[in-house]
């Protein structure tokens, strides 16, 4: 097995976290502007969904960029 040819798991994690972050962030921003979910949680005034979604996007972006497999190929070339 040539592990150097395998896309890094950290890149895949970055992609998934970014997607999760975008979904959670968007859903909560829309819910803030025009409430649709009908969910009222304790401390909902803190809008945890918005900042946690943003946090996932940032973490995901960092992993996606840092472990981007195409960047590795370009460097090798």
């Amino acid at each position: 097995m040539d592990e150097s040819k395998i896309i890094s798991i950290w890149f895949i994690i970055g992609c998934l976290l970014s997607l999760f972050g975008i979904i959670i962030f968007a859903a909560n921003v829309v819910d803030y502007i025009a409430p649709w979910s009908g969910t009222v949680t304790v401390l909902h005034e803190l809008r945890a969904g918005i900042w946690w979604g943003a946090f996932l996007i940032v973490i995901g972006a960092v992993y996606t960029i840092a472990f981007n497999p195409w960047k590795k190929k370009t460097e090798a070339a």
Binding site: F20, I23, I24, A27, N28, D31, S37, T39, T41, V42, L43, H44, A48, G49, W52, G53
Partner: peptide, 12 residues
């Protein structure tokens, strides 16, 4: 979870 997690966060 039900106490604190809103849309999307609950799925997470």
């Amino acid at each position: 979870m039900a106490r604190y997690l809103g849309p999307g966060l609950l799925g997470l």
